[in-house]
Amino acid sequence: MLPFDFEYYRPETLKEAVERYQFLEHQGKQPTYFSGGTELITLGRINLAYADAVIDMKEIAECNMKEFNGDHLVLGSALSLTQIEEANPFPLLTSVASEVADHTARGKITLGGNICAQIFYREAVLPFLLADSQVIIVGPEGIRNVQINEIFQEHLRLKKGELLVQTVTDRRFIGAPFFAKKRRQQWDTGYPLITVAALKIGQEIRLAISGLCPFPFRSEEMEVYINRWGQSLEARIDGALSVLPKSILDDVEGSADYRIFVLRNLLMDALQALG
């Protein structure tokens, strides 16, 4: 049971949601947008998250969109990961999302909730980083369309009162060859260790990683080394590992050295799979 009370609103339009947020904030309250809400419910229970008003986005049509618009796949932020898996419009996303938590929990965890979460892993963002997707964001200043690699720097850098509405992905990335693998501490259902997702566009391999650092990331520096086709696999991987971000996780789930060991093997698997 959550140890604090909050107001609950379920707007049906983006305008209503944004205005409600502003109204609550002007009243001195701490509102939050709520999609699956799993983070607020689980972390709130142990006093690691708090809100005194939640704005549930699940009734907003734009946040539930799941369709191709011309050559672009539009996915609403309130779609559950299970809905995305069942429809499978973006196989790399399906592959990555299907490893988040467990099947039943994924019926509650949403795309937007995972991307905007506080937890380290946030694997659902990896395919969008690789595919140079656009994100549609709405807030007090209106709607904006931003390339995800510009706005996702360790986390999605939303301004106060903004919410993620949709991701928009070019069809040419949807059918590209990919690799996605999640290694856990133990078994198939243990806590996550490292996830590597890779996409091959022509002769270019793109690489995004979750679980190595306290944030998911795509590294163009690592991609430079990974794409040195004239070199051995080992040399390409050694080069990529030489430009890792500095903040490697070192915790009870896995030491920094062990995480890098696992990453090295995952990179080998990825390069062997993608050529």
Binding site: Y8, T38, I41, K108
Partner: peptide
């Protein structure tokens, strides 16, 4: 018709 962990869902939802 879908499974749901009822500890992860608010009653108001």
């Amino acid at each position: 018709g879908w499974p749901m962990k009822s500890c992860l869902m608010l009653a108001v939802e």
